[in-house]
Simulated assay, not measured.
Amino acid sequence: MVRPPLSGVERERGERLGVLLRQARGERSMAQIAAIAGVSTETLRKIETGRVPTPAFFTVVALAAALDLSLDAVANASLGDEAGPALSA
């Protein structure tokens, strides 16, 4: 099965997610956060740089928990202007 190419909106959403995770990580190392989340350092690197713009849900959940971010904060930051009234409240 061939996966259809991502749209520009999907790529931008992934970039916003990466920026959020990088900012939340602060001075902590990628290795430290990746270990806490149970993902590889390379996976975290790819997400932070936007090379994996649509990471698996449970990967995002694990990273959010490791960084003490709520899923609402992750969704709002990732969606940006796409967030409707339900998520922006």
Rank of each mutant, 00 (worst) to 15 (best):
L79R: 10
V19P: 00
L67V: 01
D81W: 05
T41L: 00
G84M: 09
V19W: 07
S7W: 06
G18V: 00
R51N: 10
V9P: 07
L71H: 01
V39C: 10
V39L: 04
L6W: 11
F58N: 07
G50Q: 01
S29V: 05
S70K: 13
A65D: 09
G84Y: 01
G84P: 02
G26S: 05
L67Q: 07
A89L: 10
I36F: 11
T54K: 13
L17D: 00
M30V: 13
M30R: 08
S70W: 05
L71G: 11
T49F: 12
R16L: 06
V60A: 04
E42C: 05
R3H: 12
E15S: 09
G38D: 03
A73V: 08
T41K: 10
K46R: 14
P53R: 02
P5M: 08
R51K: 11
T49C: 07
S7F: 06
V52I: 02
L20N: 00
V19F: 03
F58I: 15
R16S: 02
A86Y: 03
E12M: 00
L69S: 04
K46A: 10
T59K: 02
A34I: 05
V2P: 05
E48K: 02
E48W: 05
A86Q: 07
V2A: 12
L21F: 03
T41F: 06
